[in-house]
Write a protein that binds this DNA or RNA. Structure first.
Lengths: 127, 127
DNA sequence: CAGAAAACCGATTGATAATCGGTTTTTTAC
DNA sequence: GTAAAAAACCGATTATCAATCGGTTTTCTG
């Protein structure tokens, strides 16, 4: 998976928010805010599809696109990808993450702990 | 801060590992593993310097380069940067991170909790 | 089947990293 | 202080890739 361009990110986010849409709908949405032709949107959708980030299915005449992956999982994979060249090792990654979260407020740290508990729980139930 | 190329990442990692080096040393190190001329290394160091990722100081005839930022802080900023287009909101980022950590073992989850405690402690002592 | 809608193809533009040859500047050694 | 050497600096080239969109082909649908 390569790096995404600006428009690709916008389109991907749109599909996470809207579930399913065809090129025309996506274009309608973005033409107000940023212009660009329908063709540009089509080729962007196509590029995202080739990258495996969008699934599509022909419905009538137009493809219906939707995000191929869960957003959380995608962001997780993204973090992995961009950090692995710098810290293949988990300890360093965790430390970096917490250092990044240092300016988060107490509620967010609580939430992070809660998520850790959930994660443990889930794993324990599976095995 | 832009995305880094492959050689830029290698060089940056080298400097985090070695502290300080000039172009010649960096070139000596990489010519075995990947080849490339001294000039290529020089312009890569220069690019990293222009990007603010390396500091340099003239020592005798050659610049001595060193990483300008702490590695943990850099990785933290990197995570921020690549995720902000997808989840400006912290909750989602935390969830994504934990989802990414789901396959980490118990020891790493423990360590993450410990780091959270440390972070709280540090903040409480400061205010 | 004809018209419309969408997909597909291909060309162009603009960034940017990697690469390295050649020139200028700076050091150092005598 | 000058000449040789070392390094910095400049500029050109190549490659990749996103964005853009015009034009053509394919595919629905009435």
């Amino acid at each position: 998976m390569v790096n995404l361009g600006d428009l690709e990110k916008l389109v991907l986010n749109y599909l996470w928010a809207h579930g399913i849409a065809d090129a025309k709908q996506v274009h309608d949405h973005f033409k107000k805010s940023r212009g660009g032709s329908l063709n540009t949107i089509q080729s962007t959708l196509d590029r995202l599809h080739k990258k495996g980030l969008l699934a599509r299915e022909k419905q009538g005449h137009a493809y219906q696109y939707r995000a191929a992956t869960d957003k959380k999982a995608f962001i997780g994979a993204l973090i992995r990808k961009v950090t692995q060249d710098f810290s293949p090792d988990n300890d360093q990654l965790l430390a970096a993450f917490v250092s990044m979260s240092a300016d988060m407020d107490e509620a967010h740290l609580d939430r992070l702990e809660q998520l850790i508990q959930d994660s443990r729980q889930r794993r324990d139930n599976e095995t």
